[in-house]
Write a protein that binds this DNA or RNA. Sequence first.
DNA 1: CAACTAAATGCAACAATGTTGCATTTAGTT
DNA 2: AACTAAATGCAACATTGTTGCATTTAGTTG
Lengths: 149, 149
Amino acid sequence: MVQEAMVELRSQGYKVTRSRRLVMEVLDKVDKPLSPYDIQRLLQQQGESLNHVTIYRTLDLLCRLNLAHHMLLTGGFIRCALSHQGGCHRFMVCRGCGSIREFIDDALCHEESGITRDLGFHTEHHYSESLGLCPDCYRKRLEKDSTYN
Amino acid sequence: MVQEAMVELRSQGYKVTRSRRLVMEVLDKVDKPLSPYDIQRLLQQQGESLNHVTIYRTLDLLCRLNLAHHMLLTGGFIRCALSHQGGCHRFMVCRGCGSIREFIDDALCHEESGITRDLGFHTEHHYSESLGLCPDCYRKRLEKDSTYN
DNA sequence: CAACTAAATGCAACAATGTTGCATTTAGTT
DNA sequence: AACTAAATGCAACATTGTTGCATTTAGTTG
């Protein structure tokens, strides 16, 4: 994933630098939304040091190139996992472990566009976050319930 | 709207204060998401002064009572226009004028839950923002196009 | 209506997050 | 190896958000 991102960077005329590789590696390793300062702290823990300004500018660039996303419910950044049609972003956010999973559903986009169109609104993009429990956290929750209830 | 909100405050055991009325009046007047500091600046322009800490605490309370919402695409707060089933929030955000309109659609929630369930995820709430053009801005856009193209 | 009290507010001080301009360094090229 | 535009680091600053505590106030009671 990181390597592909670096190739994309170069093909768009941007330089492949230590900072960009490091930020992308962190996003790739952690499947939860990370703030710029989160990323700085994680890098420091592994002995790497990056100026926060650089991290901000790197994340801006990665988002412009659709290599990262800016999540809204949490405010953090994640790596982009899917390519998008028409800029429609849908995410599942686990309230147990904070992990994110991205999905695409054309039929759903179509239906939502239809509803807003009926209200006189001309929709261009959808952004949706579903909050709930991922399979792991749901299973843990069930086990816990069966133990203590 | 403001009066109803004040009644709700009192019925929940909270005091009706100048700060809470002022914040609610601003949210009611402006149909765009406002940050706490936006609200402070608007109030200052009309000769009213509120400490930013008070505004933060007031917005927290209004959101807890579902009298206001915290928007994600813009990060600002708006007044709550609809009562909600199961905490599902859907908004249309106009990229022309920034105005917000809230809507509810049970069928859509049901469909989105089904899709995430098929992916192993147990959805509890949906949060969705549709970005596009409101009727006014769409009409203006058409007029502009017909004039200059 | 005056006194009372818990709740709400303001203030100060601070912490965290973002932003900008400019000097220095570096990736990719010649 | 030298060159250059791009990228980074640094410093300084601006904005946003948080906490503890003293003061004020809304709503209640006598």
